[in-house]
Nucleic acid binder design. Sequence first.
DNA 1: GTGATTATGTTGCCTAGGAAACATAATCAC
DNA 2: GTGATTATGTTTCCTAGGCAACATAATCAC
Lengths: 161, 161
Amino acid sequence: MDKVEQVANGLRELLNKKSLLNNFKMKDSLKGFKSSEVHCIEYIGENVDSNVTKLAESFYMTRSATSKITQKLMKKGMIESYQKSDNEKKIYFRLTEEGEAIYKIHYDLHKEFQERDKTVFEQVTDEQFEMILDLVEKYSKHLDDEIKKLGVALTNRNDFE
Amino acid sequence: MDKVEQVANGLRELLNKKSLLNNFKMKDSLKGFKSSEVHCIEYIGENVDSNVTKLAESFYMTRSATSKITQKLMKKGMIESYQKSDNEKKIYFRLTEEGEAIYKIHYDLHKEFQERDKTVFEQVTDEQFEMILDLVEKYSKHLDDEIKKLGVALTNRNDFE
DNA sequence: GTGATTATGTTGCCTAGGAAACATAATCAC
DNA sequence: GTGATTATGTTTCCTAGGCAACATAATCAC
């Protein structure tokens, strides 16, 4: 197995593990909310004039699925929609007070996770971070180029390895 | 946004993009197979005496879901099961000839992806790889410790960030 | 302007996969 | 040995989310 493979596999395991652990902690504080709902609240809390399309793009999800999540959050009273006079098709969302409360809980939990994992990253130098970030960006650009080569809109899901 | 966050976000986007792209290519050659099925074939092809439990652990999936996949692959004639005399409960799997064929196709495609992305990694030095791998492993260990602290079996899914 | 194309959001249908319950073999405690 | 616990696999039920089809507003070409 070459080094790239090794990193990729380690990373996959790492991310799985992290999501298992964080999810476990998460559920205590945020019972009754799916992770996707919390994610959605987070995004809306941080981006003014969020709409289904923007959310979907950010989550790498279909608009269809995203629409269902926002509908649920509306029913739960976590978010509310509004429109603008210059466009009567776009539907924007903002957090309600209850939504803000959830946002805050999630935010704090996030901080808690950061604190928990701090020690691991303290040993990493700035140059090393730059190097990693640079690599990630280069790879991302490379994939963008490859996607362009296809000349197709990739709306497909399926997490193939 | 701190550096850790930045890397994490970039990585998430990167992985999503990669799976979109690879899946798109994948589907041409391997129509009629879900990514999870191909994954399963891959694992069985590379690990003798695979069983549902091992597969599930490797995929970070429930045994329930894994069982369904192996059943499908059996029906499709891609894998076959066998047992050993020392244990009449465990059910092992091996690839059939058809399964081997799919394995080969996937393997070649994988090579093709590696080739495609080679240029990105050529610029990375061995020391840099070691550094990254080291970080991933440290983080993974750290999470293992945190999971141990909970003293709970985390069988939970849900990919919370 | 008008017609075609694109953007945005939603609905219905379907599938992958989790949770819980279960059956039964294996193993452990004694 | 026997009984309790654990390991392994499966089934049933349910939900999240993709896909395709759709409706309708916005925009573009002319």
